[in-house]
Amino acid sequence: KEFRPGDKVVLPPYGVGVVAGIAQRSVSGVSRAYYQVDFPGSRSKAYVPVEAPHSVGLRKAL
């Protein structure tokens, strides 16, 4: 896996977040693995496909 729990990442347009782990989510009846990204200071979460994280701009924070 490219990202691990605890990694600081950037996800446009949300900003800097932390990978909380990998979650299985069902979309249109198909279960897939997603990185769960939490954003400190907020209750917001984002789910990014493990198979294509760069397709939505997910990258490691510098």
Rank of each mutant, 00 (worst) to 15 (best):
V19T: 00
L58P: 03
V30I: 10
V18E: 04
P40M: 09
V37Q: 01
P40F: 12
A33D: 14
V30P: 13
R59F: 04
A23N: 06
Y47N: 02
H54M: 08
A20W: 04
V10F: 14
D38N: 11
G41C: 15
R43W: 09
G41Q: 11
R43A: 13
Y47V: 02
A20I: 13
V27Y: 06
S42L: 12
P13M: 08
P12Q: 06
L62C: 15
Y35V: 04
I22K: 03
S26A: 08
E2A: 12
H54L: 08
G17R: 00
P40R: 05
A52S: 11
V18W: 10
Q24F: 13
A61I: 15
S28N: 14
S31T: 14
S28V: 08
S26E: 13
L58T: 04
A20D: 04
V10I: 13
Q24P: 04
R43T: 13
Y14W: 12
V37S: 01
G41R: 10
R59K: 11
R32I: 11
K60I: 09
V50M: 05
Q36C: 11
R59L: 07
V19E: 01
S44M: 15
E2W: 08
P12S: 05
L62F: 08
S31P: 08
A23C: 15
G21L: 08
A23E: 12
Q36Y: 07
P5M: 10
S31Y: 10
R43N: 14
L58E: 11
S28C: 14
A20R: 12
Y14I: 04
A23M: 15
K8H: 12
L11R: 00
G17P: 02
L11E: 01
K1I: 14
G17H: 04
G6H: 02
V10S: 06
A20C: 12
K8C: 14
S44F: 15
A61D: 10
A33M: 13
G15V: 00
R32V: 11
S44G: 13
G57Q: 06
V18H: 05
S42H: 10
P49W: 06
V18N: 03
Y14M: 15
P53I: 09
A52L: 06
V27M: 08
Q24W: 13
S28K: 13
P12F: 09
K45F: 09
D38F: 13
V16P: 07
A61N: 06
P49F: 04
V30E: 09
F3A: 02
V9L: 03
P13S: 07
L62M: 12
L58Y: 00
V27F: 08
S42I: 11
E51A: 08
V27E: 12
Y47A: 02
V16M: 12
V9F: 03
K8Q: 09
G21V: 05
F3P: 02
G41K: 10
D7S: 04
P13L: 08
Q24A: 08
P5F: 07
A33T: 10
P12W: 12
D7G: 02
V50S: 02
S42C: 15
V37D: 02
G17F: 01
A46N: 02
Y34N: 02
A46K: 10
P5C: 12
A23P: 03
A33F: 13
P53T: 12
P5T: 12
Y34M: 05
P49R: 03
Y47E: 04
V30N: 05
R59M: 05
A61K: 06
V27Q: 08
V37R: 00
V9S: 01
L11C: 08
A20G: 06
S55W: 07
V18Q: 04
A33H: 11
V37M: 01
V56M: 09
K8N: 07
P13G: 15
V16Y: 14
H54N: 09
G15Q: 02
F39M: 03
V48Q: 00
G21C: 13
A23D: 05
P49H: 03
Y35I: 13
K45N: 06
G15K: 03
S31G: 06
V9E: 00
G41A: 12
G6Q: 02
S26D: 11
K60R: 09
S55D: 11
A20H: 08
P49A: 06
A20Y: 05
K60E: 12
A20S: 12
S42V: 09
K1L: 15
P49M: 04
K45P: 15
R59S: 08
P12H: 09
G57D: 06
V10Q: 05
V48E: 01
V19M: 04
G41P: 14
Y14A: 02
D38H: 11
V48D: 02
D7I: 03
P40L: 10
G15T: 01
V50D: 00
V9I: 05
Y35T: 01
V50N: 00
P13T: 06
R59Q: 09
L11N: 00
P13F: 09
S26F: 12
V9G: 00
E51H: 06
L62Y: 10
F39D: 01
P12I: 05
P53Y: 07
F39G: 00
L11K: 00
P53E: 04
P12T: 04
V9P: 11
A61R: 06
H54T: 08
L11Y: 07
Q24D: 08
K8V: 14
V18R: 08
Q36H: 05
Y34P: 01
Y47R: 00
Y34L: 01
K8S: 09
G15R: 04
V27S: 07
R59C: 12
A23I: 15
Y47C: 07
S44I: 14
Y47S: 02
S28Y: 05
R4I: 13
L62Q: 13
G15F: 04
V50R: 01
R32W: 04
S28L: 10
A20P: 00
V48H: 15
P40T: 06
G6L: 03
L58G: 03
S26T: 15
V10G: 01
Y35C: 05
G6N: 03
R4D: 04
G6M: 03
I22T: 05
E2N: 09
A23R: 13
V30K: 09
A46C: 10
S28G: 14
L11H: 03
P53H: 07
Q36R: 07
V18L: 06
G41N: 12
L11A: 02
V19L: 08
H54S: 10
E2M: 10
R4W: 10
A46I: 12
V16L: 15
R43C: 15
R59H: 15
A23S: 11
G21R: 12
A46S: 06
A52P: 04
V30Q: 09
S28T: 07
A33G: 07
Y14Q: 03
V27P: 04
Q36V: 15
V19K: 00
V10A: 04
L11M: 08
V48M: 03
L58N: 03
F3G: 01
R4G: 08
Y14L: 07
H54D: 14
G21P: 00
R32N: 09
R43E: 12
P40Q: 07
R25A: 06
L62E: 15
S26N: 13
L58S: 03
P5S: 07
G57P: 03
S55N: 09
D38A: 11
G17C: 04
F3K: 01
S55F: 07
V19F: 04
F3M: 04
V50K: 03
Y14G: 01
Y14H: 08
A52R: 07
A20T: 13
V37I: 15
K45D: 03
V9T: 02
F3T: 01
Q24N: 12
L11I: 05
G57T: 03
F3S: 01
Y35K: 00
V19P: 01
S31Q: 11
V56S: 14
V16S: 07
Q24V: 14
G29K: 03
S26C: 14
L11G: 00
L62V: 15
H54A: 11
S28E: 14
G6Y: 02
G21E: 05
R32C: 10
G57A: 05
D7K: 00
L58C: 07
A52F: 10
E51D: 14
V16W: 10
Y47K: 01
I22M: 04
S42T: 13
E51S: 09
G29T: 02
P5I: 14
G15M: 03
D38C: 15
A33V: 10
Q24Y: 13
R25Q: 07
G57C: 11
D7P: 00
G17D: 01
K45I: 13
P40S: 06
V10K: 04
L58W: 00
V16R: 09
E2R: 09
E51Y: 06
Q36I: 15
H54Y: 07
H54I: 06
V48I: 08
A61Q: 08
S28D: 15
S31I: 14
R43Q: 13
V18G: 00
V9W: 01
V27T: 09
K45H: 12
G21S: 09
G6T: 02
G6R: 02
H54K: 06
V18P: 00
S26H: 08
G17T: 00
E51V: 07
A23K: 13
S26K: 12
Y34T: 00
V16D: 07
A46V: 13
